[in-house]
């Protein structure tokens, strides 16, 4: 069982997230695809919320998604009927490209992985066993239904007391949750 304090979060992308991302990057991102842009925006916002510009070298970056890069994959399959795909479009089908983009943006080298499908809770369970003292940056990104980009900057901590509550799955990304404990329990400090 592991306990994390939530040091920063991004729970949704505002309507003007593309403009905000361009402002953060200093230029509009090019040819990385909508899903990766959405992920980049959320991760950078989350880090800023945690007061960080980069992850420590020993931190873990874990990214998950229900549908990931379905849109560019469908486009590449269409292109493949008659010809080879466009190279940059093929790269957009690879979810791990977002990990590289984030690493490059943070000037960071470390352990990062993409987990396809499942749930944010399952992702948290994997992050809990794999992360060390520098904690983890946990993201869940989907571009369907207008797009969602949810990120948490988690740092391990010791919390006493008995205020832990069993949590519903969707509670992971609730704004009033301050701590998480794996094994399906969440500490809610707002009570």
């Amino acid at each position: 069982m592991k306990t994390f304090a939530i040091q920063g979060r991004c729970l949704a992308a505002p309507p003007d997230w593309r403009e905000r991302l361009a402002a953060m990057l200093g230029a509009k991102p090019r040819r990385i695809g909508n899903w990766a842009e959405l992920g980049l925006y959320g991760a950078l916002c989350c880090l800023a919320d945690a007061g960080e510009t980069a992850l420590p070298p020993d931190a873990l970056l874990m990214l998950g998604s229900r549908r990931g890069t379905y849109v560019p994959t469908g486009q590449v399959l269409d292109q493949m009927r008659d010809d080879l795909p466009m190279p940059l479009m093929f790269l957009q089908t690879q979810p791990s490209q977002l990990l590289a983009l984030l690493a490059a943006r943070m000037h960071w080298r470390g352990h990062a992985a993409f987990i396809a499908g499942g749930s944010p809770q399952a992702l948290l369970e994997l992050a809990a066993v794999q992360s060390g003292s520098a904690g983890a940056l946990l993201g869940w990104v989907d571009e369907m239904d207008g797009g969602s980009t949810q990120w948490l900057r988690l740092k391990p901590c010791e919390v006493g007391g008995n205020e832990w509550k069993p949590a519903a799955a969707e509670a992971l990304f609730m704004p009033d949750i301050t701590h998480l404990r794996t094994a399906g329990n969440i500490l809610d400090n707002t009570d």
Partner: peptide
């Protein structure tokens, strides 16, 4: 439990690292 690890060519080795941690 079932997880799908996709880190392109390194997927299996990253699965091994997850397994090791578990």
């Amino acid at each position: 439990p079932v997880h799908v690890v996709n880190t392109a060519c390194t997927s299996s080795l990253n699965a091994l690292l997850s397994a090791q941690a578990l």
